[in-house]
Every structure is written in C-alpha cells, then in structure tokens.
C-alpha cells in the first residue's frame, strides 16, 4: 500500500512523488489535500496538497519542499518504498464552474496544487491566464504543464534569473487592469497570498486562496487549523482549504503558523545532522 511509484527532484529542496493510492486517486478533486505519516508510532502527520492524480493507474502526485523533519525523511525515501499512512482526499474541492475569465497565480511550490485547479477551470470552459512565480530560475516548477493549459502564461522570478523580474503581484495587477478577470485563484506562501488578495481587492475581483495551516487529524477534530475569516473562526480542514482571500486574516494566520517554530527549528537542525550522518555512512 501507498508505494512510491516515481520520484523526481525538481530543485534543491523540491521533490515530486507519484504514490500508489487507488481510492484517493478515484475520489480526489481539484483543491483537495492528503495527510501523510511515515511512522505509525512516533511520526507526525503533515498535510500536503495533491498536484495530480491518475485514477486508472491508481496514483496521486504530490510535490513538497523539505522544510521539517517529515518532509526531509520523505525526500530520503526511494521508488518502491511504502508510506505507512496516507489519508485523503481531504478538504472541500474547489468550486469549478464557468466563471468566464480566471487568473491563476502560483508561487513556489504553490504552483503544484494550482495545477489541477487551473486544468479543471480550463476544462470547464474558462479563459485562463496563469502567473507563476519563484525566487529564482531553479525553483520554477510545472512551467510546461501550465503552458499547456494556459491561454496566457506569465513566468516571473524575484531575482530576474528567468522570465520577468517581478513578484507575482506585478503581473497580477496588470491582468486586473487590462483583462477584467472574473475570478482569481492564488496559491503559494501566505505572504504571497496576502498581497495577491490586496492586489485584486481594489478591482473587486473575487479571489480564492488555499490555506496550509497547522493540522493534526485533518478531519474536523483538533481545531489546530483554525483561521479568522471575515471575523469568524473557520477550520481549514473542513471549511476550507479555500477561502475568500479578501476576508482571511493573513497576519494572524502567519503568526499561528509559527506556534511551534522553536521546537521545529531544533528538530530541523537535528534532522539535517541525521541526514548528513546517513550520507557519511553511505560514503564510508
């Protein structure tokens, strides 16, 4: 169960994995995520978005960045290895329908979960403009796949090493000014989503953002994932993960994401030591 069927390193810290998960592949819809755990006794449960699925093959594709203990361990696994626990698909699917003109904005690995949404929006008959952004050339992912979907594709990097030298909000503003989109979908780091929402606000363009918060069960039990949306407390796992970006209290969400930073930084450090140790053994 949950065997890794393929693994590809997309950049220094970004990996793609295709995982055997026939039930999830069958049921999943754009916008949904999974939770995985590598060790039943002591592992942590981490939420990851689904980048793609193949119901016939019975597989899902995830893309993740090595940030904490589990993602580092996951990155160290190889094709053929099995993931002990995999739960999904979780969260509300994206409301896919014909809006007219949809602008999809992806930042960093946020491009991965954006991919199935953009694809479904296109298939639903929307005109789709896609903006993808990354810190630098090496971190640009899914350009080819997005190019196949988009009526117009804009790639930008923070340092100008590839595409336009811009933050995604630059081209997003232009698109709002010149193209009058009916809907914006922005997925990426919280700070990026916050500023995308600020960019579209004056134009009155409805903006969906997909939140990735602290989560344990992912099924509506622990309440760790709560966010303030329009002054109300909402739970990302059952009310989300997508919300109206103009109503999300991003500042509070970002602070809450840092709740365990102290513990995790120590862990991350230990993890790198562990992995380095493993490499040393490999060389010996």
């Amino acid at each position: 169960m949950n065997r890794i069927l393929a693994k590809r390193q997309l950049s220094d810290e970004v990996f793609l994995m295709k995982i055997e998960a026939p039930l999830i592949a069958q049921e999943r819809q754009p916008g949904q995520f999974i939770i995985l755990q590598l060790d039943t006794d002591f592992g942590e449960r981490i939420p990851l978005t689904i980048a793609d699925a193949d119901p016939e093959e019975g597989s899902i594709t995830i893309i993740f960045q090595t940030v904490g203990n589990t993602s580092h361990r996951l990155a160290a696994m190889e094709t053929g290895d099995a993931i002990e626990n995999l739960l999904g698909p979780l969260g509300h699917p994206t409301d896919i329908r014909k809006y007219g003109k949809v602008v999809c904005v992806g930042g960093g690995i946020g491009v991965a979960p954006l991919h199935p949404i953009a694809k479904a929006m296109k298939e639903a008959g929307n005109e789709v403009t896609i903006i993808i952004g990354a810190r630098n050339r090496k971190l640009v992912i899914f350009e080819e796949e997005m190019g196949r979907i988009a009526d117009k594709l804009i790639v930008c990097t923070d340092d100008g090493s590839y595409g336009r030298k811009a933050l995604v909000t630059g081209p997003l503003k232009e698109v709002c000014e010149t193209w009058n989109p009916d809907l914006a979908v922005a997925i990426g780091p919280p700070i990026m989503m916050k500023f995308c929402a600020e960019t579209t606000r004056p134009f009155g363009v409805h903006t969906l953002v997909s939140l990735n918060t602290i989560m344990i069960d992912g099924t509506g039990m622990c309440g760790g994932c709560r966010v303030t949306v329009g002054g109300e407390t909402k739970f990302v796992c059952v009310d989300g993960p997508e919300f109206d970006g103009h109503l999300v209290d991003f500042d509070n969400m970002m602070l809450r994401l840092g709740t365990y930073t102290r513990e995790e930084e120590a862990d991350h450090h230990a993890c790198h030591l562990d992995l380095a140790l493993e490499e040393d053994h490999g060389n010996a």
Binding site: I216, C222, G223, T228, R256, G258
Partner: peptide, 13 residues
C-alpha cells in the same frame, strides 16, 4: 487566536 491558545482536543491528541 493568539499563539498559545489551543483546544483540549489538539493538546491531548
């Protein structure tokens, strides 16, 4: 929603 406010469910889980 300040940092350090948790549900008992989360804490106990």
């Amino acid at each position: 929603n300040l940092i350090g406010v948790l549900s008992a469910n989360e804490y106990l889980t």
